[in-house]
Amino acid sequence: MTDEKSVVLGDVEVIRVREWHRPFAPAADLFPGVAAEVWQANEDWLAPDHWEPDSGSAVLALQTWVLRSGGRTVLVDTGVGNGRDRPGMPPFHRQEGDFLGLLAKAGVRPEDVDVVVNTHLHVDHVGWNTVDADGEWVPTFPRAQYLIPAADDFHYGPGSDRPEVDRLIYEDSIAPVHQAGQAVLWDGRHRIDEHLTLESAPGHTPGSSVLRLASGSDRAVFVGDLLHSPVQILQPGCNSSACLDPEQAAASRRRILGRAADERELLVPAHFGGSGAVEVRRGSGGFTLGPWADFGPKRTVPAPE
Rank of each mutant, 00 (worst) to 15 (best):
M1E: 06
D3E: 10
D3M: 10
V8D: 04
G10C: 08
V12L: 08
V12E: 03
E13D: 08
V14R: 13
R16S: 11
R16G: 03
R16T: 10
R18F: 00
R18Y: 00
W20S: 05
H21N: 08
R22W: 00
A25Q: 13
P26R: 06
P26K: 05
A28I: 11
L30C: 06
F31Y: 14
G33Y: 02
V38D: 07
Q40M: 11
D44L: 05
L46V: 06
E52Q: 14
D54N: 14
D54I: 07
S55G: 12
A61K: 11
T64L: 01
V66T: 01
V66G: 02
L67I: 05
R68F: 03
R68I: 02
S69C: 06
G70D: 09
V74K: 07
G79A: 01
G83K: 08
R84G: 07
D85H: 11
D85A: 15
P87I: 03
G88D: 13
P90S: 07
P90M: 01
R94M: 08
E96D: 12
G97T: 13
D98Q: 10
L102W: 08
L102A: 09
L102T: 02
L103W: 08
A104K: 12
G107E: 00
G107H: 02
V113A: 08
V113D: 06
V115A: 08
H120S: 09
W128V: 00
N129Y: 01
T130R: 01
T130A: 00
V131Q: 10
D132Q: 10
A133T: 09
V138W: 01
A144H: 05
Q145K: 15
Y146S: 12
P149W: 08
D153H: 11
F154D: 13
H155C: 04
Y156F: 15
G159T: 06
G159I: 04
R162M: 11
P163T: 13
R167Y: 00
Y170V: 06
E171H: 03
I174F: 02
P176F: 00
V177K: 02
H178N: 11
Q182C: 07
A183S: 05
V184R: 06
G188D: 08
H190C: 13
I192S: 01
D193Y: 04
D193F: 07
E194L: 07
E194W: 05
E194Q: 11
T197Q: 15
A201L: 12
H204D: 11
H204V: 15
P206I: 07
S209L: 11
V210Y: 11
V210F: 09
L211K: 01
S217W: 15
D218H: 13
G224E: 09
D225H: 09
H228R: 14
S229H: 12
P230M: 05
P230T: 03
P230K: 03
Q232K: 06
I233R: 09
C243Y: 06
A249C: 15
A250E: 03
A251F: 00
S252P: 07
L257H: 04
L257C: 08
A261P: 01
R264Y: 14
E265S: 15
L266Q: 05
L267W: 10
P269F: 10
A270H: 10
H271Y: 08
G273Y: 00
G273Q: 03
A277G: 01
V278I: 14
V280F: 10
G283P: 08
F287T: 07
T288M: 12
L289S: 09
G290R: 10
P291A: 14
P291M: 04
W292I: 06
A293S: 13
K298C: 14
R299D: 02
A303N: 13
E305W: 13
